[in-house]
């Protein structure tokens, strides 16, 4: 077990370590942490803070992918939840009241959950392919967010809300604590209960799971709902960072980054086994990569190119054909099977 675990996480850990080493060599300031007042600053701290929304979304994506699904709508859900929260706070006479802010966040996250449950309904009950089911919301969601804000970018002034993404607690960004809490919560729920292993069973072998009596429909439904909740919360963090509900920019492409983080973290797109630790490492790897690209002076708009390269490398490593090609060259065997018998 120990051996398997290390094997599964070897690639993402190696990638992360390599990135950090390269960065440190290129700019020694990368690992430096400075103290200003009672707050810590430095590139590593930035990574911890900026990675929070992606962390939440990736955790949800991980659960969905484990069921053999995919959730494209997370970015749109982020936009909706940010729009809801800011519109509520904007319309409230007491935007600085903690109660107002908590209420707004609660409602926004609840809506995220409902949207996730809607995806789950389409996939688990209606039987629509996950890509398409979530594509519907991906298309419509941002439009809904724009409608909520009336087509404008709602901006607010609310100290408690601002604290979500920009505040500090014992020297570290509050957003970092949010992502730690999310990781801990997901790990607890998935691993302390049997949810994790049942989810994996459904993802690996749906028919065997059904015959073993696993309630796969409920599990799939729950996975999408969880993804919705986490995306909803990520939307809060994102909008708190800018203090604006920008329905077009919020969570743009985050579904793709999240999928990449999950895959980097060793979860196969074919579903099944997942590790929370792997996903966490995947998220940090991507965030470090982004920071590196930025540092290299590459315009952030060009960053997707590097991600594309990363995606291709990862899928090629996962590709059974490439593996069998390697083994085949090693063994000299040559079945015709790959042509037809799949």
């Amino acid at each position: 077990m120990k051996k398997i675990l290390t094997h599964r996480l070897m690639l993402p850990i190696a990638a992360l370590v390599a990135l950090i080493v390269i960065n440190t060599i290129a700019r020694p300031s990368f690992v430096s942490v400075t103290v200003k007042g009672d707050q810590l600053y430095g590139p590593l701290i930035d990574i911890l803070r900026n990675s929070a929304p992606l962390m939440l979304v990736s955790l949800g994506m991980m659960i969905v992918i484990s069921t053999r699904g995919i959730d494209l709508s997370v970015g749109a859900i982020m936009a909706v939840s940010g729009a809801v929260a800011l519109t509520i706070i904007d319309g409230s006479p007491t935007p600085n009241d903690l109660g107002t802010v908590l209420g707004a966040i609660g409602i926004a996250v609840l809506i995220g959950m409902l949207l996730g449950a809607w995806n789950g309904f389409l996939v688990a009950v209606v039987g629509v392919q996950p890509i398409i089911a979530t594509l519907v919301l991906m298309l419509a969601g941002r439009g809904v967010a724009l409608l909520i804000t009336g087509g404008f970018i709602t901006t607010i002034n609310s100290a408690p809300y601002k604290f979500m993404a920009q505040g500090y607690v014992i020297g570290l960004p509050f957003a970092f604590f949010v992502s730690v809490a999310a990781v801990a919560l997901v790990a607890l729920i998935e691993r302390r209960t049997a949810l994790g292993v049942l989810t994996e069973a459904v993802g690996i072998n749906p028919e065997a799971s059904r015959l073993a009596g696993v309630r796969s429909r409920g599990i799939i439904w729950g996975a999408y709902a969880a993804s919705g909740v986490l995306a909803g919360f990520a939307g809060i963090l994102y909008s708190s960072n800018t203090m604006a509900a920008d329905s077009n920019a919020a969570g743009l492409y985050i579904e793709l980054y999240a999928i990449l983080a999950v895959v980097l973290g060793g979860t196969s797109l074919m579903g099944g086994k997942f590790t929370v630790a792997g996903t966490v490492i995947g998220v940090f790897t991507i965030e470090t990569l982004r920071s590196t690209i930025l540092f290299l002076g590459v315009p952030s708009a060009v960053a997707p190119l590097f991600l594309a390269v990363a995606v291709v490398i990862v899928v090629l490593i996962q590709s059974p054909r490439l593996r069998s090609l390697v083994t085949r060259t090693a063994q000299g065997a040559r079945p015709n099977t790959s042509e037809v018998a799949r």
Partner: peptide, 18 residues
């Protein structure tokens, strides 16, 4: 390489946009 069309075209989309 048996990459799902979704992922393969996603990579191409990233690359082209970059």
């Amino acid at each position: 390489f048996d990459v799902q069309p979704f992922i393969a075209s996603l990579a191409a989309m990233f690359a082209a946009r970059g």
